[in-house]
Simulated assay, not measured.
Amino acid sequence: MYKDLIFCTFQGDFKDPRNILREFNRLTKDAKLPGITICNLRHLHATQLMINGVNPKVVQERLGHLRVAVTLDLYSHVNEDLQVDTALRFEQEFLS
């Protein structure tokens, strides 16, 4: 039975969160990554999607937020950068 899990055992069952954290910490240490967390990866994923112009509704659904407003509030810093980029693009097109 497919359970739609991100972290699961080889049999597809729920994995103990302590084991997930232990494995993740070992992998990041072996890769010589600075203190990165699973939450950091989630934030990076969402931020990159927003920067790449993915519709916020899609980002909201991927993150599991109940409302798109939550996603937009949490990633408003990305939206500000996108606003500046959009304004510069518009100006360039308008003046060309």
Rank of each mutant, 00 (worst) to 15 (best):
D81S: 02
D85K: 12
V70K: 10
L44I: 15
P17W: 07
K15A: 10
N79F: 03
D4V: 11
I20N: 06
R22S: 09
R18F: 14
Q83L: 15
N40W: 02
R89G: 09
I51S: 12
P17R: 13
V78C: 04
T37G: 13
F24Y: 13
L44Y: 15
N79P: 03
T47C: 00
A31Q: 08
D85M: 10
I6S: 00
E61Y: 00
L95V: 11
L5M: 03
F10T: 07
K29S: 14
L33F: 15
V70Q: 07
N55T: 05
M50N: 00
L33Q: 14
L95P: 00
G12Q: 01
S76N: 09
I51V: 05
H43F: 06
T28N: 09
K57T: 02
L88V: 08
C39W: 15
R42W: 11
V70Y: 10
L66S: 12
E93A: 04
K15Q: 07
H65N: 03
G53L: 00
V84A: 05
N40D: 15
E80P: 08
D85G: 03
F7W: 04
N25I: 04
K29T: 15
N25P: 07
L49Q: 12
I38A: 03
Y2H: 12
K32E: 02
F90M: 13
I51Q: 09
C8L: 02
A31K: 08
G64L: 06
S76Y: 12
V58M: 11
Q48V: 01
N79S: 11
L21N: 02
V84W: 04
L74H: 02
Q48H: 06
Q60E: 08
R67P: 01
Y75V: 00
E93L: 05
R67T: 13
L41A: 05
P56C: 00
L82I: 15
H65W: 11
N40H: 09
I38Q: 00
G35C: 02
H43N: 14
H65G: 10
L5G: 04
V59A: 12
T71H: 03
V58K: 07
Y75F: 11
I20R: 04
R42E: 12
L66F: 08
M1N: 04
V59Q: 01
E61D: 12
I51F: 08
D30A: 10
L49G: 07
T47Q: 13
P17E: 05
T9D: 04
H43M: 08
L33W: 15
L44N: 14
Q83H: 11
I51W: 13
L88C: 10
V84F: 06
N25L: 12
I38G: 09
G64N: 06
F94R: 08
N52Q: 08
V70C: 01
V70E: 01
D13G: 11
D81V: 13
